[in-house]
């Protein structure tokens, strides 16, 4: 009976999980800091068009507007950035705004929860600026990001 009680207690705990804070897994990852809403929602077009120089102005708008910034890794995964270089202002923060569309190499702690990837960037190892010059293919995305020249 004692064994049964223990078994039931273990099963009960598993049935109502509590996610204690974790240490995170140290990773180094290279990728572009993107605006996640446009990337995930498709509101401005396909994923190739809502990154890089084509989408830079929109990435500034979204970052300043408090939309979460993600690190689109070379592995194709999006890592939601919760903190970067000691700055926990993940909603409209200056650090993330200044790195909009930049390719960086990040050293940090990785977390996964309910299908989303998260990263606490402890150190920006390198900031390579904007490396994906896709405005030559797509123009500005959205088109109105670039004001028409005054007559």
């Amino acid at each position: 009976m004692k064994r049964l009680s223990i078994l039931l207690a273990v099963m009960g705990a598993a049935a109502s999980p509590t996610y204690a804070a974790e240490q995170g897994e140290r990773i180094e990852i290279k990728g572009e800091l993107i605006d996640t809403w446009c990337y995930f929602s498709g509101v401005m077009g396909g994923p190739d068009a809502v990154v890089g120089s084509a989408h830079h102005t929109c990435a500034l708008w979204c970052s300043a507007g408090g939309i979460p910034v993600g690190l689109l890794g070379e592995d194709g995964k999006v890592y939601m950035v919760l903190k970067i270089d000691g700055d926990d202002t993940s909603a409209s923060g200056d650090t993330l705004l200044s790195l909009a569309s930049h390719q960086i190499e990040a050293d940090g702690l990785y977390y996964e929860r309910d299908g989303l990837n998260y990263i606490v960037v402890e150190n920006v190892v390198s900031d390579n600026g904007i490396t994906y010059r896709n405005h030559e293919d797509y123009g500005p995305v959205p088109g109105f990001a670039l004001p028409e020249p005054k007559e």
Binding site: Y19, A21, E22, G24, L82, K83, D88, Y111, Y118, V120
Partner: peptide, 11 residues
């Protein structure tokens, strides 16, 4: 607070 929820850093 998502950072708090994941890491225990809770202001």
């Amino acid at each position: 607070d998502i950072l708090c929820e994941l890491t225990g850093d809770c202001p």
